[in-house]
Amino acid sequence: MAEFDFQGLTASFNGERVIGPLSFQVHRGDHIGLVGKSGAGKSTLIRLLYDRLEAKAALVPQALGLVNALPVFHNVFMGQLDRHSAWYNAVTLVRPFRKDREAVRLLLEELAIPEKQWAPAASLSGGQRQRVAIARAVYRQAPVLLADEPISALDGPMAQQVMAMLTKHFSTSIVAMHDVDLALAHCTRIIGIQNGQIALDAPASEIAAADIATLY
């Protein structure tokens, strides 16, 4: 039984269709790597899926969507704004509560940036910013992760570590990425996109990097 059934996904830009119509199903426990050359429609597909899933998904967009003027803590805390009353959120903006501070710190430790908890997001490097957006998505505690190139700015070991963390925290995930080896290593299923259509959909264990290369 499929957990999510996506039917007839389409998107157009300036009257030109860039995605679909395409359909696929996602099962609980699927960790899907979305691959394809740039411009194939991966980002658009991630957006489409987010619109369908809404509250069930946490999103890491390519542009990250951090609030530059706020410290890292608050950017992460924003993942749970819906769980607290307005006054709780307002007070947290001025003076965060201890248990929230603790929870966010643990996440940042896992991402190896605990010392940045109170630094403004604007002061971070590209890789650090990606990790903050990831922390926010994890803190959100949604059942599904949708991420668009979340580790593009991370170096090898750190990218491995973060991917492992994501599969640990989310029961289901759909991650667009250009690094084929990482996709094969951490995902259970690979979906290849070409010209807005699904060109490849197979368990990661059944395909090799060479099969994916045909997409590019």
């Binding site: 809404e54 509250a55 999103l59 967009p61 542009a63 969507g65 951090l66 609030v67 530059n68 003027a69 706020l70 608050h74 924003m78 993942g79 749970q80 704004l81 819906d82 769980r83 607290h84 009353s85 307005a86 959120n89 307002a90 903006l93 926010r136 959100r140 949604a142």
Partner: peptide
């Protein structure tokens, strides 16, 4: 507008304003 779009659905409008609009 991106940070506001990323907030969990159901976030109180006031909190959304406070976190995703004002600081920037």
């Amino acid at each position: 507008p991106e940070p506001a779009r990323l907030l969990p659905p159901g976030t109180h409008a006031f909190a959304a304003f406070l976190y995703a609009r004002i600081p920037d």
